[in-house]
Design a protein around this nucleic acid. Structure first.
Lengths: 140, 140
DNA sequence: ATGCCTGCAAAGCCTTTGCATCTGC
DNA sequence: GCAGATGCAAAGGCTTTGCAGGCAT
């Protein structure tokens, strides 16, 4: 993979932030420096960079994908209210004890063989938490 | 919520299968009995039925939502190859020991308060498993 | 010259929504 | 007659893709 200038700028911009931006947010950041860049190029490059393990991709249901320059293993929390994603620094259990014994096992009823699992964390970012304190009726 | 005939048929058709169909699959099943039903109605009713807890909704990133008549708590596995979802009958750990201690806690660095977590399981359905045995190069 | 990359625009996929009409109480 | 539900079609949000031209080797 050659490091074109677009690719380089995309990577640099991503590395400036800790907010796990969406493709569109990256696009807008990159646009400041490369006004003629296209959204398609941003998508293509983010995809390529994440495929090669240079950056991370964070996917969750019903929400646009987000990207992370930090590929070291760490937990993410997604705000259940606004969708923001944060890095978790609490020391959480990394694995579910006893779960690994099930990997590779075929469930007799469904016929599925288990290959992996992951723990998804949800929470409230500071501003959403504060807003909910103010108006509890906004809860859903 | 009134039980219209469309709603009733949607529920009945969903209850006939164990495949966790997508909205579109439900639509096609319902169409056999109500040829003039609309996709929008199917979406609206599936949403309403799941909001009220009569059926379950299964969401995962990059895949269409799926629905489940069985609202009793149970695990799902998603086939990493074809997206099919199965019910897991293996007796898995229900919770991550020690994790609950973190609920309600604010992570100092990110500022997020943890509110919940869930374990996602991935695997291979029988037919994808078999196909991968035949042509290992299809793996990704 | 070649092969990868880009900008642009269009299409794609899934889901939601506006609106006029219809239904059942 | 009214509230709520429907069919239809259009729009919406996000992502991918086809294509013609560009750039570096």
């Amino acid at each position: 993979m050659k490091m074109t200038s677009q690719r380089q700028v995309i990577l640099e911009e991503l590395r400036k932030v800790t907010t796990h931006p969406t493709a569109d947010e990256v696009y807008r950041m990159v646009q400041q420096r490369l006004p003629r860049v296209s959204l398609g190029t941003v998508y293509r490059n983010l995809e390529m960079l994440s495929q090669t393990g240079i950056i991370g991709k964070i996917e969750s249901p019903g929400a646009p994908m987000r990207f992370d320059w930090n590929v070291a293993p760490h937990h993410h929390v997604r705000c259940q209210r606004c969708g923001r994603v944060g890095d978790l620094h609490l020391h959480l259990p990394e694995t579910v004890p006893g779960m690994d014994a099930f990997l590779g096992v075929r469930d007799p009823k469904s016929g599925f063989v288990l290959t992996g699992y992951q723990v998804e964390l949800v929470g409230l970012c500071r501003s959403c938490y504060d807003q909910m304190q103010v108006s509890p009726k906004d809860m859903d």
